[in-house]
C-alpha cells in the first residue's frame, strides 16, 4: 500500500463510521426521552386517570408533565444517591446487573427479577448507568421490591452466609462498626443468627451499620421496577 492519504482517510473513516452509526444515531434516536406522568387527563371527560398513558380505542394517549407532579422513572436522591456511590466504588456491578430482558429471552421474568423488560427511559435520570454484564449474583433492578426489609440487607451485607448459605458474595463487615451499647440498644443493631456464635459481638457491644452501610441499603431499597411505561408494560 503506497497511497498514504487513502490509508489515513480509511483509518479515520472506519472509526468515524462506527461512532456516527452507534453513538450519534442513538443520541438522535432517543437522547431526548423525558420522564412520564403519574396521571393522564382524559381528552374528552378531563377525568384524571392514574398511569403514564391511557388507551382510547386503539390510540395511546400520554400524559403531559405538570409542575410538582410525580413523574417516572423516579430520580434517586439523598441517602440513596450517596449509597449509589458506595455501590459504584465497591464494584458491585461486576457481579450484579441492573437490567431485565424481555419475557421469553432468558429467564429474567420467571426468576422474578422484574415484571417487564427495562427500556432506555428507565435509565434517563441516572448520572451513571450500571447495566452490568455479569450475573455471578442476581439482577438488582427490582431488589427493593423483592427484599424490602432493611434488616435483611444489613445481615446479608455483614455476612452473606447469614441469609444465603453457600453464597460467594464477599462480606462487607467494613460497612459496620462494633460499639459499646449506650443507654439502650440501637434499633438497627444487627441480630446475628444463633448459628453463627463466632460472629456475635462481645457482651455489652452491638454491631451497627456505618453511614456508608445505611446509604448503601437505602440505595438498594430504592431499586424498584413498579411503574409501567408506554413502551414497556407489565408482562401477563
Amino acid at each position: 500500500m503506497k497511497n498514504l492519504p487513502l490509508l489515513f482517510m480509511g483509518i479515520f473513516f472506519c472509526l468515524a463510521f462506527s461512532f456516527s452509526g452507534l453513538i450519534l444515531s442513538s443520541m438522535i434516536q432517543y437522547g431526548h426521552l423525558e420522564p412520564v406522568t403519574e396521571f393522564v387527563n382524559h381528552p374528552d371527560t378531563g377525568e384524571q386517570i392514574p398511569g403514564a398513558f391511557i388507551e382510547i380505542g386503539d390510540k395511546l394517549v400520554q400524559g403531559v408533565n405538570q409542575p410538582d407532579e410525580q413523574t417516572f422513572p423516579i430520580e434517586s436522591v439523598g441517602l440513596a444517591q450517596q449509597g449509589k456511590q458506595t455501590y459504584i466504588n465497591m464494584g458491585c456491578l461486576y457481579c450484579h446487573s441492573q437490567q431485565v430482558r424481555r419475557k421469553g429471552f432468558g429467564a429474567d421474568y420467571e426468576r422474578g427479577w422484574g415484571d417487564r423488560q427495562t427500556v432506555p427511559r428507565d435509565y434517563i435520570l441516572q448520572q451513571r448507568v450500571l447495566l452490568g454484564t455479569s450475573r455471578t449474583g442476581p439482577d438488582l433492578m427490582s431488589i427493593g421490591m423483592r427484599q424490602p426489609s432493611a434488616e435483611w440487607h444489613y445481615l446479608h451485607l455483614y455476612n452473606p452466609q447469614f441469609t444465603s448459605p453457600g453464597s460467594i458474595m464477599p462480606p462487607f463487615r467494613f460497612l459496620f462498626e462494633t460499639r459499646k451499647i449506650g443507654d439502650a440498644p440501637s434499633p438497627d443493631a444487627l441480630k446475628i443468627p444463633d448459628g453463627f456464635p463466632a460472629e456475635k459481638p462481645p457482651a455489652g457491644y452491638e454491631i451497627v451499620p456505618t453511614d456508608r452501610g445505611r446509604e448503601l441499603v437505602a440505595y438498594l431499597l430504592s431499586l424498584k421496577l413498579n411503574y409501567e411505561l408506554p413502551e414497556s408494560r407489565f408482562s401477563e
Binding site: 483509518i11 472509526l15 461512532f19 453513538i23 443520541m27 437522547g31 426521552l33 435509565y123 448507568v129 447495566l131
Partner: peptide
C-alpha cells in the same frame, strides 16, 4: 491505525461517560 484509533476512543469514552455523561443508556453503548 491503532496509534490513531486508541487516543480518540479513549478521549471520547472518557468524556461521554465520566466528564459530561451522555443521557441514559447511550452511556452503555
Amino acid at each position: 491505525g491503532a496509534l490513531f484509533w486508541f487516543p480518540w476512543l479513549y478521549v471520547i469514552a472518557q468524556t461521554m461517560i465520566l466528564w459530561l455523561p451522555a443521557r441514559g443508556t447511550v452511556q452503555a453503548i
